[in-house]
């Protein structure tokens, strides 16, 4: 029987949501939560012997968390470790990716996780562990398990995996040779015809991502510059007047803070659903530092704080959407004469 250890977060372990995100690592025998579906999908060939879970914030903020998790996994001597899937949850994705790649590197045990393609964990870890492609939220769990279980079995048995496209994982960047049905020129003609018709085609070598923007020159005279605050941490006037979604935000808000000296729990709150809101709600300056910016303004460190700040929720929000938001409000920032931006993220 193949022995599997499953790594999940506090939410899937049934311990609670963001209020429990600071939970340190724990281990239980057998399966928990989504592990049940995995066990069923193994059809008797493999079994989850233990489940390790940890709060996402705890994992990302405590360097020793990964060591504790690895030690817990090592005790079980599994044949394979499955992490998540994390779908589009950024911190969970980073946790799954870290555990999977560290277990593979330190213990030499094959590992597998699953994520949505915009999860930042994909780019960070796809060359270090196998990451299966999943939907962006837990509604895709059944499909994810159905795809991940057979791949996990293959890996545990030491079988060679097929290509990324065939198996459904993100290309690892490790190039593998193969003989195709058609010669290259014929494949090129087929690909060109598809591209011309606007049909989907699959490139044989995805270009490495070089999307980098050159840094702008430094601000020369900050003492006379107008500085704006922007946040993806969801700080909004109390009551969330623009109804910014707590996850997968469809828009952003623009708020006037002229005359506001300090954000208080009476006047502002966070709309972000991806982290424990207690601290931000108690003191929103912890996310959007209006209080100290006012002091810098009075001290003459900066010229002035812009009347408006922009806020959205970075939780599960598509990169394309975030890009569009920023594209739009950047034009307004320029029109307002803003010379520098501080962007805070949670």
């Amino acid at each position: 029987m193949i022995k599997v250890v499953h790594y999940i977060n506090q939410f899937y372990a049934g311990k609670g949501g963001e209020e429990m995100a600071n939970l340190p690592p724990e281990k239980v025998k057998g399966f928990v939560g989504p592990g049940m579906a995995f066990n069923a999908a193994f059809k008797g060939e493999a079994e989850i012997v233990a489940t390790v879970y940890c709060g996402d914030s705890y994992f990302n903020e405590n360097k020793e968390a990964v060591d504790t998790v690895i030690a817990m996994i090592k005790e079980e001597q599994p044949d394979i470790v499955i992490c998540g899937p994390a779908f589009n949850a950024g911190r969970y994705g980073v946790a799954c990716g870290t555990v999977a790649s560290e277990v593979k590197a330190q213990l030499g045990i094959p590992t597998l996780t699953g994520m949505y393609d915009e999860n930042p964990g994909v780019d960070m870890f796809k060359s270090k562990t196998i990451i299966m492609k999943t939907k962006d939220n837990a509604a895709g769990m059944r499909k994810a398990v159905a795809a991940m279980a057979p791949v996990a079995l293959k890996m545990a048995k030491g079988e060679e995996l097929g290509s990324a496209a065939a198996e459904g994982y993100f290309p690892t960047g490790i190039r593998k040779g193969l003989f195709e049905e058609k010669r290259g020129s014929a494949r090129a003609v087929d690909m060109l015809l598809k591209k011309l018709k606007g049909e989907e085609f699959e490139t044989e070598y995805p270009m490495p991502q070089f999307d980098r923007v050159a840094p702008n020159p430094a601000v020369v005279d900050l003492a006379h510059a107008k500085v704006a605050l922007v946040t993806s941490g969801g700080i909004v006037p109390k009551g969330n007047p623009d109804h910014i979604e707590s996850s997968s935000a469809s828009h952003y808000g623009k708020y006037d803070i002229d005359g506001v000296e300090v954000l208080t729990d009476k006047t502002y709150e966070t709309a972000h659903g991806g982290y424990d809101p207690v601290y931000a709600n108690a003191d929103p300056n912890r996310v959007l530092p209006v209080d100290v910016m006012r002091e810098f303004e009075k001290e003459g460190r900066i010229g002035e704080l812009s009347h408006y700040y922009y806020a959205t929720v970075g939780n599960g929000t598509a990169v394309a959407s975030a890009k569009k938001f920023a594209d739009t409000f950047s034009k307004e920032l320029i029109a307002d004469g803003v010379q520098a931006v501080i962007l805070t993220s949670t």
């Binding site: 490790i174 690909m191 490139t203 044989e204 270009m207 490495p208 070089f210």
Partner: peptide, 27 residues
């Protein structure tokens, strides 16, 4: 249509140059 020099382990970047415009590649 190109070929690759991705290292003996296949882990390195395959081409010396790249651009997002090259979204249809046969190797």
């Amino acid at each position: 249509i190109t070929d690759e020099y991705a290292g003996q382990d296949g882990a390195s970047q395959s081409l010396a140059d790249a651009d997002i415009a090259a979204n249809a590649c046969v190797t």
